[in-house]
Design a protein around this nucleic acid. Structure first.
Lengths: 290, 290
DNA sequence: GCATATATCTGACTTTAGTCAGAGAATATT
DNA sequence: AATATTCTCTGACTAAAGTCAGATATATGC
């Protein structure tokens, strides 16, 4: 009753029966689960038949029949792919959109019901984020994005909030050097966000300078995604982007109040160097030659 | 990307595909899922056919056929129920036990794999406990148990640990009045543990005294189960047990460092009274007439 | 241009899950 | 003792999911 394996298996049991309930709710609209899943995949923006087949793990014959039945119902329309006439492209009709929305409303209602009977909503959501990240680890994608995108802003907001909590003296963005974004855009630099199925869970910036080196900035991993090696993945992505941009020297600054960050840098080939700026927050400085 | 509903639905997606993988792992041993589920139910100690049928939600005809196929495989043996010859009782043969163990090993390996690729194991397990409790809310059972049972000891250990964290001066069990258990056993009192599918997630004790009242002691709800109204359920169970034992006055002591407890008592008909003992820890005292 | 590979579709299956009515045996109720 | 109810089992279904071997049309590599 106390060992980790039992606890995970208890979680599995709870979740299996909840998912069962979730599955059966997809029935109740007069459509078998397979067809409902295809309809939902299309509604969520997948339009390439082969992609849907792959995503849902279906045999091509079965897929074909499911599409045919949705077409007969008037839920979808198919047309040949513009560039490859062997492929087909699917999209919802108006009736299909309505039906998809009905499924969405069902799912939302279920989520709301779970939330409604829980008074510690933040803790519950944080737990869900964590487990979603752990289970969806293989589906975490790193994407280059503008540092002004919604996703990047969200990450940066969480990053600053965390610095505020962890620095004894608090943290004021405006006092930090160069809070703005223009140097983290190609070709001077880049900004990378880690997305786990629509939730941003980490970021890193590569900031170009005019001093013969570039800087790594704003490395952040969501509490929900810690322990999965995402920090290392983000750093590797930033370093390989730097190589690609012809950058050969990287520097970064950090604070000893963030020991896990310092540890990561030391383990991945960075060397401590003397202070190279007069930013008030950092007290540790690193450099790496690519 | 930030609203609670989307976060819950992201969790659902992650978990649905993980559970899908879990389900298919039950295949791979040359047995359809239905038969595997029945075999597992039997392996976990269910032996009454009707009970298994009810637990798995199966039709009697289907159940009968699944049992027959397991019997043909040599995995189980059935015999008539000793007291009711209409019923049947099932148990694993030696081969069935082996097969069941193989499924168990599979499940354990899966759990271990998840744990192995996560370095923040405690946080992950805590998140799983929380979600398991939230999803399995309807399956949380309150059971009367000896305060010396493993389950009770586990709860009390967690309870004391939490007091140690939350009291400024720490907490030493030995200094607290009456740490022992004999007064929380019928007919003087009782001890109740809340179990969520083999994990103890809360407890409460009703302790008989010789002063014309009984005391509520050791009310604890696991962090994993907070926000679900379990504290109230435990208190209601303790109060109705008190009524049943002919007790008409209840008292309890608590500490203002545990504000959520005081709030619960005030909301459920308890009145604050002057100090009625010289225990060093409590600073708030309540009474309720049943 | 021709062989090869790929994407979809169709027909002909099998397996699994599940439903329903009723039979047979035992137990519970009146 | 008669009647109703309960539990398991069997036969006769249906629906859904999944498999497999071509057929057809298109794309790609040499």
């Amino acid at each position: 009753m106390l060992d980790p394996i039992s606890r995970i298996r208890r979680f599995n049991r709870a979740v299996t029966s909840a998912v069962g309930a979730l599955d059966t709710s997809f029935l109740g609209r007069g459509r078998p689960l397979g067809a409902a899943r295809v309809l939902n995949a299309i509604g969520h923006g997948r339009e390439d038949v082969a992609e849907i087949r792959d995503y849902l793990g279906l045999d091509s014959g079965l897929m074909s029949r499911l599409l045919r039945s949705l077409e007969d119902e008037g839920m979808i329309e198919t047309s040949p792919h513009e560039e490859d006439a062997r492929r087909r492209v699917v999209r919802l009709t108006r009736a299909g959109r309505r039906e998809f929305n009905a499924y969405e409303a069902l799912s939302n209602a279920q989520a709301e019901a779970l939330l409604a009977r829980h008074s510690q909503k933040d803790a519950l959501l944080a737990a869900m984020d964590m487990i979603g990240s752990a289970l969806g680890q293989s589906r975490t994608k790193l994407s280059e994005m503008s540092p002004r995108s919604d996703e990047a802003r969200y990450c940066l907001g969480e990053y600053y909030a965390e610095l505020g909590r962890r620095f004894k003296q608090g943290f004021d963005v405006k006092l930090s050097r160069d809070p703005d974004a223009k140097d983290m855009v190609r070709p001077r630099g880049i900004f990378i966000v880690a997305m786990s199925d629509s939730l941003p869970i980490g970021c890193v910036g590569l900031k170009g300078t005019d001093h013969g080196y570039a800087e790594i900035k704003r490395l952040w991993v969501s509490p929900a995604a810690r322990g999965l090696g995402l920090g290392r993945r983000l750093m590797e992505a930033a370093e390989s982007a730097a190589r690609e941009l012809g950058i050969s020297v990287l520097r970064l600054d950090t604070n000893s109040a963030l020991p896990e960050a310092g540890q990561l840098y030391r383990r991945t080939g960075w060397s401590e160097i003397p202070r190279f700026n007069d930013d008030p927050y950092p007290d540790l400085f690193f450099e790496k030659h690519l």
